[in-house]
């Protein structure tokens, strides 16, 4: 749906709009890759059951704000604690859930479950029977009593102490035989609470992991769009990445699909030889929380001309945040130059406050848009795909998918 003409991309607008039909995957499916689909799109097959209504773009952006607020709060808390100062930040919450779904097997016999994957989370969980309070999910609930490989832990177990160190929450332990309880509350007030246990998790026929530590949720509420739970790909020691480090050596990759009707992939371990160059950027964690994947983004270029410089304390890459957030001054510089390059189109007042550079593309099937690239420390440049520039609010309103943090010093 895209082409490059005279230094610009030609973008087919329909590729950004919500689709009703899932297109056949063009990815060569292989046993090392899990298929990734949009949580709200037609390729999440279970949407056909209509047990959950797809949110509007405005609702998705509101959720995105909750997630970003949680991330900023979490990071502020960490940095402020280092400085031995106190701020009134919300604590005890992790960030909101992500936007992309993969299917993995859990238990013996294996039950396939559609889980949201999230690089910002450390605890994997699924809704379990018996359920005291559960949101609607499209697959039957996982029943640990019907799995021969499930076991729970007591609150005095070593595994339970791992949970305490990972979530920062102290276990209440009335007696040594009391069950180990986990609880995760997300930034949008969604939550999951239940038994902490271990189970067999199956990625594919040859990649099966016994004793995988996860949460079996008996009280769960939130906007999880019919998914059965969450696959945590964060940096904590309970994340899937850490628990499978012996086999996969802490290497994984994903490709997020360009449209809601197409699919991407999630794979673990060193990749087979692929076409195309991988441009690497140094991972930086020292100045950020241990929970997130930090990079040093230094600037942004439009049509190969650097227009904004980032001098903030760092950048994290997150699979669950929708809109890229930049320091306020960086965003202003990007916005100015972007608007200059898009002068031939009608700029409209945004109906969504988060996004303030929106265009009315009525009457156009395709538009020409400038090339945007991310400039990282070490000289690495990553050019964005043409589908990675705009966020569609409606069939005629398309907004630059960047936003500024409210203040550089906030």
């Amino acid at each position: 749906g895209t082409a490059t003409v005279s230094g610009h991309h030609t973008l087919q607008l329909s590729s950004l709009l919500p689709a009703t039909v899932c297109t056949h995957s063009t990815i060569v499916e292989n046993k090392k890759r899990l298929k990734v689909v949009d949580k709200h799109g037609p390729c999440f097959q279970l949407h056909k059951n209509k047990t959950s209504k797809a949110p509007t773009p405005a609702e998705i952006l509101q959720q995105d704000e909750y997630r970003v607020n949680s991330i900023q709060s979490h990071l502020s808390k960490n940095s402020i604690e280092t400085d031995a100062t106190t701020i009134p930040a919300e604590s005890g919450e992790t960030i909101g859930s992500g936007n992309y779904i993969v299917t993995v097997g859990l238990g013996t016999p294996k039950r396939d479950l559609s889980l949201i994957f999230d690089t910002g989370s450390d605890v994997t969980w699924t809704q379990c029977q018996p359920c005291n309070a559960c949101y609607k999910q499209n697959e039957p609930l996982f029943d640990p009593s019907k799995s021969t490989s499930y076991a729970s832990f007591s609150c005095t177990s070593q595994q339970c102490s791992l949970l305490t160190s990972s979530t920062g929450k102290t276990q209440s332990c009335s007696s040594p035989a009391s069950p180990c309880q986990y609880g995760v509350r997300y930034g949008d007030r969604s939550y999951t609470i239940g038994d902490f246990g271990k189970e067999r998790i199956t990625i594919n026929q040859s990649d099966v992991f016994d004793n995988f530590l996860f949460g079996c949720g008996h009280n769960n509420q939130g906007l999880f769009s019919g998914a059965a739970g969450l696959l945590a790909l964060g940096r904590g020691e309970l994340s899937f990445v850490e628990q499978t480090a012996q086999k996969y050596n802490r290497i994984f990759s994903y490709c997020l699909p360009p449209t809601s009707s197409s699919s991407g992939f999630l794979s673990f371990g060193k990749a087979d030889k692929v076409s195309g160059v991988v441009n690497y950027v140094q991972l930086s964690s020292a100045s950020l929380s241990n929970s997130f994947y930090g990079l040093q983004l230094e600037g942004i270029s439009i049509n190969e001309r650097r227009v904004s410089v980032i001098s903030s304390s760092g950048t994290i890459i997150d699979s669950g945040t929708v809109i890229t957030r930049l320091p306020a001054s960086t965003y202003r510089a990007l916005r100015y130059e972007f608007q200059q390059q898009m002068k031939q189109y009608i700029l409209i007042k945004s109906p969504v406050s988060l996004l303030d550079t929106c265009y009315d593309f009525s009457g156009n099937d395709n538009v020409e848009i400038p090339k945007l690239s991310l400039l990282f420390s070490g000289g690495t440049t990553v050019e964005l795909d043409s589908t990675g520039v705009f966020y569609a609010l409606s069939e005629s309103q398309f907004c630059l998918a960047f936003a500024g943090n409210s203040d550089n010093t906030e």
Partner: peptide, 30 residues
């Protein structure tokens, strides 16, 4: 803190090599 969101990651393969302390990007991967 800036956050690189998922719209900007579309079609890029994002490779997390935690042991190697690096994150890679490959264009037009899906």
């Amino acid at each position: 803190i800036a956050i690189l969101g998922n719209v900007q990651q579309r079609r890029l393969e994002v490779v997390y090599d935690i042991g190697g302390q690096r994150v890679g990007f490959r264009s037009a991967a899906c």
